[in-house]
Design a binder for these strands. Structure first.
Lengths: 222, 222
DNA sequence: GCAAATTAATGATTTATTCAAG
DNA sequence: CTTGAATAAATCATTAATTTGC
């Protein structure tokens, strides 16, 4: 359904400077042996899925020395549900469950640290990358939003009882589950690039994590 | 799939795991001594601007062993223009110049590798982070777009000559400077997290960069 | 039963908007 | 008022559910 729109008109030719690169499209075929490195405690991914050489960028590994805590295959129900081919992330039941717990707990736009934390934990149940976590929250939030909107519109349009028909939209309002507001503190993944405080974070987990309340501010939503 | 559908009505109370985090808002006050580490060749930033301890997360450095190519103070015109206070990036003339070159060369949404490359290069002229480069392209693209739209609308609305009034919008059309289309290959910064192929990239710069054409595909624009 | 065809979900990207520093 | 930074909305694309004809 819905084929791609239509290509823009341009025909562009070259990049002035010789920057080129590995096409992500292709890369995505390679599993790109996730976490392991930066992740801290319990990582579970396989060392490297061969085939990773399909992907030019991933080239050589990089400081493999660093955290060489490369266990062998995962633990729980390992592969099976973890995108075997290596394309896009396919969350397992447990992963979804945990993610939803966070969501219900109020997490909407986790910052880099949170993302990595969550990623590490979820990696217990299958391969997963930080970006998957990030995207999940993005999408989940957006889709809850549109679902709610759709509902409210539906209710507004459909004639019958605008009265409280029990809790149809449950507690998705008020109380804890607010739109998002706080947490704008989320920094971006590039932080890893610049100051990879993550590697060191390992030892300060608790110390750091307790420094700030999860919802430091509440006003200033947008 | 589709299972978890309505696990929602839960009541979650606490975040099972004790995730909390460091607020980015605060962090951004700290310069967070950029690149140095990951960057490859010619890095120029100062080792670390002290004051970085304002930021809780940045804690200790991290594998300083890895690329210890930490030169001392920059070279060209060092600090001066590089956000002294430490808030947001304030590009120097040279940086803008180079960025525009890339833009005119056709770069719109550089991928992680490109970003880092560019960042390294630009860091010659002042402090800069990968995300600055990313945002610059995002904003520049968007604003060129809206500028163009505004112009075309303006022309459409204002009665006079819809004929070619020379090149008002210069080469922002056709030829080299197309909208964006390709380059969807851009991967996200999280890649650094997962597979930090960057560290190794240093030695394979040319090798890797020449593997793929910049605009591998042309259809499927959006 | 089962595999191709279709549809529904949802992961991943890009674009549009908004916020706010300077 | 320009523009760096960040978020939300829209869109694309792939996977799994499901339907359908055999």
């Amino acid at each position: 359904m819905k084929v791609h729109q239509l290509t823009r008109e341009g025909l562009w030719e070259h990049e002035t400077l010789s920057f080129t690169l590995g096409c992500k499209r292709l890369c995505s075929l390679a599993p790109k042996n996730t976490n392991t490195d930066v992740s801290t405690i319990t990582t579970t991914t396989t060392p490297f899925d061969l085939k990773s050489f399909i992907r030019p960028e991933s080239g050589s590994r990089k400081f493999g020395s660093l955290v060489d805590n490369k266990k062998d295959p995962p633990s729980p129900k390992d592969q099976v549900e973890t995108h075997p081919g290596g394309t896009r992330w396919n969350p397992t039941q447990e992963q979804i469950k945990i993610l939803e717990m966070f969501y219900k707990g109020g997490t909407r736009t986790p910052n880099t640290q949170q993302i990595e934390k969550i990623t590490v934990q979820l990696s217990e149940y299958g391969r997963i990358e930080g970006k998957n976590v990030f995207y999940w929250f993005q999408n989940h939030k957006a889709r809850e939003r549109q679902k709610r909107k759709r509902n409210s519109v539906g209710l507004a349009l459909s004639p019958p009882t605008p009265t409280f028909t029990s809790s149809i939209t449950f507690e998705t309002r008020g109380g804890i589950d607010q739109e998002d507001s706080p947490n704008k503190c989320r920094s971006w993944a590039f932080e890893y690039l610049e100051d990879q405080s993550w590697a060191s974070c390992k030892e300060e987990d608790h110390k750091i994590l307790e420094l700030f309340p999860l919802h430091p501010e509440l006003g200033k939503s947008r």
